[in-house]
Amino acid sequence: MRLDILNDGYRPGTKVLFTIIRVFSGHPLPDAAKLVFYRPDFYGAAAKKFTHAAMRGASDWSVGDRELMAAVVSQVNDCAFCVGAHTATAEQAYRDEAKVLAVLTDLDSAPIEDGLRATLRMLSTLTRTGTVGAEDMRAVLSAGVTPRQVEDALAVCAAFDITNHLADAFDFELPSPAGFKAGAKFLLKRGYR
């Protein structure tokens, strides 16, 4: 059920900011961005900081890899908004739509490195079941993924598992394909701040 707060639960200055963004971008502000402006002291500021660190902080995973992780977690959670947003962002980050589509269609045959494949499998299992075991971690580590990369991937998973559930709970509106592409361009330029 979509709550009215996403439409009008903001201070006048924030509403003006949303209008300016719409005028300059040609697209309405996505609901994910609106959500962080609603009660920023309770959720927004902490969520932006954590998500930005997970997605754009120092990591041996590329930005494209982390955006792909977000898309895969979102796909497992069946969150249409986040699948669209992070598929578009991964495609732009990699500059390779076919690669992203291949991963989301059939992970086993997708043209990606074994370490990323093993990590995406582990994140899928964690998202679907809520747990992973020693065998799951051994498979990731034996594929050449470092413990630090595992931590970084788990941070991406945590950020988007929460965001997926919020997107569905608040019934985020789906942008047009052009809206998703514009949002992806913004995320690649500015991150999640």
Rank of each mutant, 00 (worst) to 15 (best):
G84T: 03
L174D: 02
A118G: 03
V36A: 08
C82H: 00
M1A: 13
I112C: 09
R22S: 15
T146G: 06
I5C: 13
T89C: 07
I112N: 03
K99R: 14
L17M: 14
A58R: 12
V100C: 01
I112K: 00
A71P: 04
D41Q: 12
A110G: 04
G130F: 06
C82Q: 06
T163Y: 11
P12H: 09
A143P: 05
V103G: 06
R190I: 14
E135P: 03
E91F: 04
Q75P: 01
T163M: 12
S124E: 05
T105G: 06
D31K: 01
H52T: 03
L120C: 01
H27P: 03
L17A: 15
L166T: 08
V63F: 10
A80V: 08
D161C: 12
V100M: 08
V23P: 03
G115W: 06
K185I: 08
L174R: 02
A70S: 10
D65R: 06
A45S: 12
G57C: 04
F81Y: 14
G64C: 06
F180V: 04
E67G: 00
A139I: 06
L6V: 03
H52Q: 04
F186C: 01
Y43M: 11
F160W: 09
F37V: 07
H27D: 08
F170M: 14
R56G: 07
D41K: 12
S62C: 06
A118M: 08
Y43N: 10
L35F: 08
T51C: 10
D136T: 12
A88H: 09
Y10R: 01
R121N: 11
H27L: 00
A33I: 14
T146E: 01
K48D: 11
H52E: 07
D78T: 13
R193M: 12
D65N: 12
N77W: 07
F81I: 00
A159N: 03
T163Q: 12
A71Y: 09
P177W: 02
W61K: 02
S142E: 15
T14A: 13
L187F: 15
L6S: 09
H52V: 02
N77S: 13
